[in-house]
Simulated assay, not measured.
Amino acid sequence: MANGDRWWLTSSEHIVSDEVPAEPSDVRAFYCDLQNITELHPLVVSVETIHREETADSYTQIYRVRDRIPIGPLRPGITYTARVQVPRHGDVLTEARQFPHVLLSGRVSFDQVAGGTRLTERLRIQAPRLLAAITVREAVAAHTEMLAGIRRSF
């Protein structure tokens, strides 16, 4: 599909970060297991592993995630696929695909700082123009809260 056919989609980039009082390897391992986020991510209701593929230098895990998205007084459930690509070293890549044409891609770094780890998510959010504002607002707020929850977990 040509770019002109996607006029109804928009994308934006955001950075969410927090400092966690633990070693980068421990924070990275905790972050990469999406089972941990059910208690930390304010929208996630459940997470189920549906596939894992390992190579010599990385693994990719695919999850089925169920969220409750606030839309005014309603909180409809939505199920989507999330993928986490974890190289042996370096940044972790994430991707969540939701209906209708919402894509949240992330590059996550775990940098040593005094007192622990700076956990940084660089997010790219693509959504239909009519849903973009609420999608970005909810995603950035939820990921900010999730990182704060990771900090509190250590």
Rank of each mutant, 00 (worst) to 15 (best):
P76K: 00
V65Y: 00
V20Q: 02
S11F: 12
G90M: 01
D67R: 04
D5G: 08
E95T: 13
S11V: 10
E95L: 13
F99H: 15
F30S: 03
H51R: 08
A148W: 08
R152Y: 08
Y80S: 01
L103V: 09
E95D: 11
E138C: 04
T135H: 03
D33T: 05
A148T: 14
H101P: 03
D18G: 04
S105T: 13
E145T: 15
A132P: 11
I50Q: 14
A141L: 13
R68C: 07
V86E: 05
G106N: 02
H143N: 08
A141C: 05
V140E: 02
R52W: 04
D18L: 04
A133L: 13
S25H: 03
A2T: 14
S105R: 06
L74K: 12
E95N: 10
Q98N: 10
Q35A: 14
P21I: 13
E23C: 04
F30C: 02
A22W: 08
V140A: 04
Y31W: 14
A133K: 08
R28N: 02
I134G: 02
A22N: 11
F30N: 01
R97F: 03
F110G: 00
G106P: 03
I125N: 09
R129Y: 10
R97V: 11
L9Q: 09
R88N: 09
E13M: 02
E145Y: 09
D57Y: 01
H89D: 06
P100L: 11
V44Q: 08
T94S: 04
A139N: 10
A142Y: 00
P100F: 07
Y59H: 06
I37N: 02
T38R: 04
D67C: 05
G115L: 05
A139Q: 06
V136Q: 08
L130I: 15
P100R: 07
R28Q: 05
E53R: 01
A141K: 14
H51G: 06
A133V: 11
T120W: 03
L93I: 11
P100V: 14
Q85L: 07
S105G: 13
F110P: 00
R75V: 07
G115M: 09
V92M: 02
